[in-house]
């Protein structure tokens, strides 16, 4: 386990990730500068452009800290550099963990468990996580120009007032995903050979924390908590796992 952790936290890995992220950051800076200059050229007020930059930067600060908490949660099993890379580009915590779990099972592990992980499995898991998330990027590379062109050409349709099934489909998909995992934790908690009640307890604690957050967000209007609810609920439940393990 120690050799696995030192491999996934190696200095060279940090350097590789830093190089990739530097490239992506430079790309963002180029888009920012080009758009800023275009705005000036078409006669937009500099003050408005600067305001857009400042408001976007301040708007992003809090959610970014919550992403950082996600890096902490992921780093225990996948190491700091890869967690840093994955949560800086494309994905989000829920995608990364789910895919890592699926990939871990596909290489013959029982799941994303530290004592079972090795560097060979990690490389395969990392590759699945990377390829699995590139769908949106490939859509942009191959179809964005055509799609945006069509949208600009097509006459605006009268709105029926009812949104399509698309938005509900994604929610339904995630409901199914959660149902499969929670169902497996219930099954695992049934007393018999090799049973383990911890995953169900941790899931219940995380759900209870999330319920408290949702109460404050929905009923008390504390919308700012939305940025932290997922990562904070997870970290509290993970901390509870340590306490329960000591207590049992």
């Amino acid at each position: 386990m120690e050799s696995y952790l030192s491999s996934v936290n190696a200095g060279s890995f940090f350097l590789i990730v830093a190089l990739v992220l530097t490239f992506i950051t430079i790309m963002c800076v180029v888009f920012l500068v080009k758009s800023y200059r275009a705005g000036i050229k078409i006669g937009m007020d500099k003050k408005i452009l600067n305001k857009a930059i400042v408001s976007s930067a301040t708007f992003t600060l809090l959610p970014s800290i919550s992403i950082l908490l996600g890096v902490v949660a992921l780093s225990g099993t996948l190491g700091v550099p890869f967690s840093w890379l994955r949560l800086s580009v494309i994905g989000a915590l829920q995608y990364e963990l789910n895919v890592a779990e699926i990939a871990a099972q596909s290489v013959g592990l029982s799941g994303l468990r530290l004592e079972e992980l090795n560097i060979g499995a990690f490389v395969t898991i990392a590759l699945v996580m990377t390829f699995g998330i590139l769908g949106g990027v490939f859509c942009c590379i191959f179809f964005l120009k055509k799609y945006m062109g069509k949208l600009q050409q097509s006459p605006k349709k009268e709105k029926s007032g009812k949104p399509g099934f698309g938005a509900h489909a994604t929610t339904a998909m995630f409901v199914g995903l959660c149902a499969a995992y929670i169902g497996s934790y219930i099954g695992k908690a049934i007393p018999r050979d090799g049973y383990d009640i911890m995953p169900l307890l941790v899931a219940l604690i995380a759900a209870a924390c999330m319920a408290v957050f949702e109460y404050f967000i929905q009923k008390k209007g504390k919308a700012v908590l939305e940025n932290f609810s997922l990562a904070a609920s997870m970290l509290i439940a993970m901390a509870a796992a340590v306490v329960i393990n000591v207590a049992i």
Binding site: G76, L97, L112, C178, M210
Partner: peptide
């Protein structure tokens, strides 16, 4: 801290499950 990191997936789906189940 091993139990914490071994249960990161249950923690995620517990929190996410509450959110999505409550929504739908």
């Amino acid at each position: 801290l091993l139990p914490a990191f071994n249960n990161v997936v249950p923690a995620l789906f517990g929190a996410l499950g509450l959110k999505y189940f409550a929504k739908s």
